[in-house]
């Protein structure tokens, strides 16, 4: 009995030594983006006690995968409300998997938005458009939350830029998203170009857009895509740049 008491006392002493070490290591892990999942009471109510315990015990990924299968099923049956619910849970469990944020945003901003726009059960066009915009906003919201959890990765900025450009039509925000993506060394080759295209669609930003497009044009033939040439010409026309000062001077029609 004395020996057990001695072992317990030593265990407590060891605990006092390890306490600050564990706290410091946890903080270091957090700075490297580990342990970012917020496993809280609302999540426990949503996913159930068993899944919550499993998630706490180091099986967040597996639980998130099971929920992804359920979300896939809901998506196949166009149950958009359930898709949102499942992806909220999935992204809470696995906030560092960019694929989950991407898919959630895609399902909302593209699939659900399009489905609600063509909803045969809703006779009123205004309400269909309203629902479509609401889903697009949800898609954007997923990506913005994803970016807050993954500020060190370009991919979600890229996807946000795509949704803002193709679906929402907020060109200034799309420019900002693409410009941010372009800052990452491993980004796609077209990020800067798309940022410049989007800026050229913003009224009042023509001069800034022209500078960006001209800089890209000067980088060589690889950047001379038809859209870049077309946007460059549009900016030169809008800014009324004299022909001799223009960066891009396409040959005129034969006389």
């Amino acid at each position: 009995m004395k020996r057990i008491a001695a072992v317990l006392a030593l265990l407590l002493l060891f605990g006092a030594v390890k306490f600050p070490m564990e706290e410091a290591l946890t903080r270091t892990h957090r700075t490297a983006y580990f342990h970012g999942a917020q496993l809280n009471l609302p999540l426990r109510e949503q996913i159930g006690q068993g899944a919550f315990v499993a998630a706490l015990s180091g099986f967040r990924g597996v639980i998130a995968d099971l929920l992804t299968l359920k979300a896939n099923d809901a998506w196949e049956n166009t149950r958009w409300d359930r898709v949102v619910l499942f992806y909220d849970q999935i992204t809470t469990l696995q906030p560092r998997v960019t694929l989950h944020w991407e898919m959630a945003a895609f399902y909302m901003a593209y699939d659900a938005a399009q489905a609600s726009l063509n909803d045969p059960n809703q006779p009123r066009q205004t309400l269909r458009v309203k629902a479509c915009r609401e889903y697009q906003r949800l898609g954007r919201d997923f990506l913005e939350r994803g970016i807050r959890n993954n500020p060190d990765r370009y991919v979600l900025y890229n996807r946000l830029g795509a949704i803002l450009m193709n679906k929402i039509g907020d060109h200034e925000a799309a420019y900002e998203a693409y410009a941010k993506a372009a800052e990452f060394p491993d980004c796609m080759g077209y990020e800067k170009r798309f940022a410049a295209y989007e800026l050229s669609k913003c009224p009042g930003k023509e001069a800034q857009a022209y500078a960006l497009l001209a800089k890209l044009y000067s980088e060589g033939p690889r950047e001379h895509t038809p859209t870049l040439l077309q946007r460059l010409k549009a900016m030169e026309d809008a800014l009324k740049i004299p022909p001799e000062q223009r960066v891009y001077n396409p040959p005129g029609p034969p006389s």
Binding site: L25, H29, Y33, F34, H35, G36, A37, G58, F59, G61
Partner: peptide, 11 residues
């Protein structure tokens, strides 16, 4: 402290 695989799989 030893549950790092979920985040490592995430990249």
């Amino acid at each position: 402290l030893f549950n790092l695989t979920d985040d490592i799989v995430a990249g």
